[in-house]
Design a protein around this nucleic acid. Structure first.
Lengths: 333, 333
DNA sequence: AGCGGTTGCTCATACGTATCACCAAATACG
DNA sequence: CGTATTTGGTGATACGTATGAGCAACCGCT
């Protein structure tokens, strides 16, 4: 089932079929011919071979997206948002879940498939060999590089909002937990949090700054360490929701009541934040929006359109008050 | 950067380059020539154009996967499993998140991209027009069709195990919640549960059989309805974990204590099941395994290998005892 | 020396589409 | 009526790769 078959069936040449079905609308085709071709294509159920089209047009109308792990709901949402936008624009999406293979290799594979562009989310772009990204259309999610266009959320704002909320509740003994090898976004969340505390004259001390993998298990471990301190904090900000869920779990295991004994604020607002008990107070980061925006930015770039507008300002984050925060317990009850 | 460039650089023809770099190993190439070509390719950073290869070989070495929603962690895991297996075999993965567009349309788009096969997970295959799947390599996840090869989990077994557990704890007043338009798998989970109850002389009555979307919100609503009954059940089996999380949430909101007042069993064992409080007792369905197996089955089919072995027996499910089940409260305390 | 067989490579072509150059017929124009 | 212009289409080619046919050189054997 090729364009030639349709041509034969409609009594025209393959060129004409191509012009009718995918050529630009300014092609001069008689209405009657156009009808015949379209009808023939419909009857035969013709679908163009996008490999062939891609080969000659040097555009595959597909884009790749690389994430470190689909397990993390945050990245799932990014993918979901990007997929939607790409799909609506007629683009296909090639997914690469980093896993064992280094991200750079994934990018190379995607480029072999001639993707028109690549979205990188949560991968350490700075550590990738230059050649992998050389003259590729790349959009980086939530990790401003200065070298590639990107979309980001207001990460320092996220940390700041968490701090402001906890401070306003009266907390003064605050802790933070985040990954040991933080990505840009995690660094900024931490910085925003720490700076806001400092400005309020409430510096964070080293034992209250825990490093652990940004996962539920990591949060669990870090929380256990915090609870083992001589004077545990009364409030906690976690680099992401997964860690916060782990912290919540550790508290439940240790019999520490949230929020009456300890207030916890997460970050991302993954769906699960609403479904745990108590519901997690967090800072909403528009993951799906980031993915969608990344895709839009990429598509605009491919069309050679101006990208300044989209690339510019970070996406707003929003504090979401739920049930894991409350005023600190009174001292020496 | 094409094979011709490499050829020129190595002083051979493009054919030779092709033979060296991707031709079958039985091609007769002098060692010295082979070296030269490989070296030239390395120097130039040559990567073959898979579109061109796909066009001539009539195989794209890519497969498509269609899911109804990436939001559901179950499907995320299926995708993740399939992606891993495909990636290791050198296949690319085109993702289609159903969303607004009907699944059949997604399949057509994937086929335009010449995917070698398609994995369908959670899409209503029976309602798809035949032409969409005509002479395509299809593997259906968890929905035996009789027309297409598929991989499935032991869904009746899942329902049965949930029933057996609750019965063995002493429950006699049991409820079920599942979607109103159940897929095959959901129907079988329900059937296994109901049958096991019946065999134990403990039939389930109609008001204890709730229909709601298989989501957290749906579970929440259904649970609220159950709690409003004159005699609420002491035990509950949910068609999937998302519903169970919703039920848990509704209980928390209504002040019903789990598991002392009500036992809840979910199904799937999504990651979150471990992280809610109390931890969710559930039946583990190997989602990642299903995805991996679907991919393997598809790849074998593409190689023209025998597929009987893989297609055969459903994957085992496993009861996972956690914290949401306990003996029923004594009557009239 | 003569000859079949093997080795090592190249030539030409096909895959299915888009697109440029070109052409015949029809039409406009003075 | 002769010529410029437009209309509506076709033919040929290119995209980058794989691959069967073919070919020259060399080998082993009698």
């Amino acid at each position: 089932m090729t364009g030639h078959d349709v041509a034969a069936h409609a009594g025209v040449s393959q060129s004409t079929v191509s012009l009718v079905l995918s050529g630009n609308p300014k092609a001069r085709i008689a209405d009657e011919t156009r009808e015949r071709v379209i009808e023939a294509a419909r009857e035969l159920g013709y679908r163009p071979n996008l490999l062939a089209r891609g080969l000659v047009q040097r555009r595959s109308f597909a884009l790749g997206i690389v994430v470190p792990e689909l397990d993390n709901p945050f990245f799932t949402e990014v993918v979901s948002g990007a997929e939607r936008v790409a799909g609506e624009a007629g683009y296909g999406v090639l997914l690469a879940d980093s896993g064992q293979i280094p991200a750079a290799e994934h990018v190379m594979r995607l480029r072999e498939r001639q993707v028109d562009g690549v979205i990188l989310a949560g991968v350490p772009v700075e550590t990738m060999p230059d050649e992998a990204l050389a003259d590729a259309n790349v959009v980086v999610v939530d990790e401003p590089t200065g070298r590639y266009p990107g979309v980001a959320s207001d990460a320092t704002g996220a940390g700041r909002k968490a701090a402001e909320h906890l401070l306003s509740l009266g907390h003064r003994s605050l802790a933070f937990m985040g990954p040991a090898d933080p990505s840009y976004t995690f660094r900024m969340r931490e910085r925003g949090f720490v700076q806001a505390l400092r400005e309020a004259g409430c510096a964070i001390t080293s034992p209250l700054l825990r490093r652990a993998p940004a996962s539920v298990a990591g949060g669990d471990r870090a929380m256990a360490a915090l609870l083992a301190l001589e004077v545990p904090p009364t409030g906690l900000f976690c680099a992401n929701d997964l860690m916060a869920l782990g912290a919540l779990k550790a508290c439940a295991a240790a019999g520490v009541r949230v929020p009456s004994e300890l207030s916890i604020v997460g970050c991302d607002d993954i769906e699960m934040a609403r479904y745990v008990t108590p519901e997690l107070t967090t800072v909403m980061v528009p993951a799906r929006g980031l993915g969608a925006r990344a895709a839009r930015l990429l598509l605009l770039t491919l069309d050679g359109r101006d990208t300044g507008a989209l690339s510019g300002k970070p996406l707003e984050v929003e504090f979401v008050s739920r049930q894991t925060t409350a005023p600190p317990p009174r001292r020496e009850p």
